[in-house]
Design a protein around this nucleic acid. Structure first.
Length: 574
RNA sequence: GCCCUCGUAGCUCAGUGGAUAGAGCAUCCCCCUCCUAAGGGGAGGGUCACAGGUUCAACUCCUGUCGAGGGCGCCA
């Protein structure tokens, strides 16, 4: 592989910097050195290097002079002047500028721009990736829907966010395991079996004999039909055969769960979401695992007995009241299972665990962490981490659709994928930050699907592909001379934008927020469309043509990589 | 009552303590003899809920108030 690297940087250093931005490191070093000249020692963490929003403020900026002004008891502008004067001219920068209250703005030279853009051609599908995770183990658990009904739009939001996070953390050098946890034990599964049995016996949901807490959706009828037809279901490597026997509740239960798990997996696969590990709640009932966890906590003196029940002193770990672990009837409360499960995750060696859940699970966080702390086995206080997404409200004909599984009125993920499409649904569900409640307008998504921003991004990519095809290009790099020919505002803006991409990948991981990628791509597409309307590419001036083709070829790589982080396709034609 | 999240343009939403607060939709006006008009350019539209505080600097952090949603079980 041909390596492009900066003339004044060694190859070793280049590799070292694969995970961080070379120019940022350079600026950081320059600042540090200058600080030392002033007799100020500064930590790397305290050096902030930003990407200014506006083109007029350069490619990088630092607020160091503003931060030091108090300590040095000097006007920030004066400090900035001293900084700029003491930084030697460098081939990567064309100019340093002091702006506003005392920002120092760095403008890359043509050489600087060429080196940054060439990273794109060098790394191709890996451009933007970094190794900040050092290949450590990270697990992300998401969706984890109960096998009691089809997945709805809320699960879709969890699936989209979780899957995108997994892709983003992989790109940041983490070894990611995607996991799905099934609550396949407990009352809700019995309810499912009873509901299917009732349908098998032709008891309608309106009938008073229908189970009170039963599931009333039409999908129960489908399960009953398959069961009575004695069908077999193969899922997760096992075959589940329906006996057709109306009174064999155990068989009905197993078949129904298998049926729904298979259906959920199909929906998720259609949503381009797959999992590495499926864990069943029922597996923790084996081998006295629960008892042993409870005993450990008891031994650590974090429990007491009151009113015939065993309580965990969760208040010692920040809860507002203590919680029951073992009920007076001897059975365990639900969060104990969660503690057992998370102890299991810890023992599997995950340095980090991220649980992506609906915000209604908020209250479990304190209890699970408290239970893990009470085990006293060295688990960090803030482990596991959580990403909680707020509810999705669905509107149709300007009316809110209530999502109620029991009542059976329902917007399924499957419906959405069919009506809106996988790409658009994924984009819509991750384009807003998880903490925002969001409104999914079915009519808008269906009838005006062309107005969905995802098409705007994909269209930019398709347009580039069309030009590249006609140009019959084979762009492998961009030269300094190429860069020097790109002088319009739109061209400079595009260059600035594409070389920011690695920062966006880092940010999306550190904030656990895929929507940064979505927002970035929309902005990048916008910059491209402006450029496309302003400039022509298939032109007679072969040098200029080469420059422009190289630029948009780089843009297309960045769009592909960005969409790939979101699990969205980058079609070459639209 | 307690806990969590949110409150930014008519609507849906972005905005990493930083420079003139942005986008899409909606309204109005322009732009295809030309590489994909699913596009571009422009206009109008803002008390960043409100009040204090911290800071060189606050939409952003802290406190309080108001409003919206969710959660607070010996349910799972």
């Amino acid at each position: 592989m041909k390596l492009f690297y900066l003339s004044h940087v060694s190859r070793v250093e280049y590799y070292f910097c694969l995970y961080c931005n070379l120019v940022k490191k350079l600026i950081s070093d320059l600042i540090k050195k200058t600080c030392e000249n002033f007799g100020v020692i500064i930590d790397d963490q305290d050096i902030e290097i930003d990407r200014p929003k506006s083109l007029g403020h350069g490619d990088f900026s630092t607020n160091i002079a503003l931060k030091l002004s108090k300590q040095l008891k000097q006007n920030p502008k004066k400090i900035a002047i001293q900084f700029v004067e003491s930084i030697d001219s460098h081939p990567l920068f064309s100019q340093l500028e002091i702006a506003g209250p005392g920002f120092i703005n760095f403008f890359l030279s043509s050489e600087g721009h060429a080196s940054q853009v060439n990273e794109i051609f060098l790394k191709r599908e890996f451009y933007g990736h970094n190794d900040s995770g050092s290949q450590q183990s990270l697990q992300i658990e998401f969706v984890s829907a109960n096998p009691t009904g089809p997945l709805h739009i809320g699960h879709g939001r969890g699936a989209a966010i979780g899957d995108c996070l997994a892709r983003i953390f992989s790109a940041n050098g983490w070894r990611v395991t995607k996991e799905f946890y099934y609550n396949d034990a407990g009352a809700q599964i019995n309810n499912l079996a009873l509901s299917v049995q009732a349908r098998l016996k032709n008891i309608s949901p309106k009938d008073p004999n229908f189970p009170e807490d039963g599931y009333r959706g039409d999908y129960i009828v489908d399960i009953a039909k398959s069961y009575s037809q004695k069908k077999s279901i193969t899922t997760h490597g096992k075959i589940y055969k329906a006996s057709g026997d109306l009174d064999d509740l155990q068989n009905i239960k197993e078949f129904s769960v298998a049926f729904l798990r298979m259906e959920q997996n199909q929906d998720l696969a259609n949503f381009r979401t797959t999992f590495d590990v499926f864990t069943l709640e029922s597996s923790f009932y084996e081998n006295d695992q629960i008892e042993s966890v409870v005993q450990n906590i008891k031994n650590n003196n974090y429990t007491y007995e009151k009113e015939n029940a065993l309580w965990l002193k969760t208040t010692e770990f920040g809860d507002d009241k203590d919680r029951v672990m073992q009920k007076s009837d001897g059975s365990y409360t639900y969060f104990v299972l969660d503690v057992v499960y998370h102890k299991n995750k810890w023992e599997r060696g995950f340095i980090r665990v991220i649980n992506e859940q609906g915000a209604d699970h908020h209250s479990t966080i304190t209890r699970v962490r408290a239970g893990l702390q009470a085990l006293n086995i060295g688990i960090p206080k803030d482990w596991p981490e959580y990403v909680l997404h707020q509810m999705v409200t669905v509107t149709k004909n300007n009316e809110e659709l209530k999502i109620s599984k029991r009542a059976g009125s329902y917007v399924t993920l499957s419906d959405l994928i069919t009506e809106v499409g996988c790409d658009a649904t994924r984009y819509f569900l991750i384009s807003r930050k998880a903490e925002s409640q969001l409104i999914f307008d079915i009519d808008l998504a269906k009838s005006k699907s062309n107005e969905n921003p995802v098409y705007y991004i994909q269209y930019a990519h398709a347009r580039i592909c069309a030009v590249l095809k006609q140009a019959n290009h084979n762009t492998q790099n961009i030269s300094i001379q190429d860069i020097e020919r790109l002088t319009t505002k739109n061209e400079l803006q595009l260059i600035k934008k594409i070389i920011e991409f690695p920062d966006v990948v880092l940010l999306a991981a550190s904030e656990k927020s895929p929507h940064y990628v979505a927002t970035y791509l929309k902005d990048l597409a916008s910059d491209f469309h402006s450029y496309y309307n302003e400039s022509k590419f298939l032109i007679d001036d072969s040098n200029l043509k080469k420059s422009r083709i190289a630029l948009i070829a780089a843009v297309s790589i960045v769009i592909q990589n960005g969409l790939s982080l979101l699990g969205i396709s980058a079609p070459e034609k639209m």
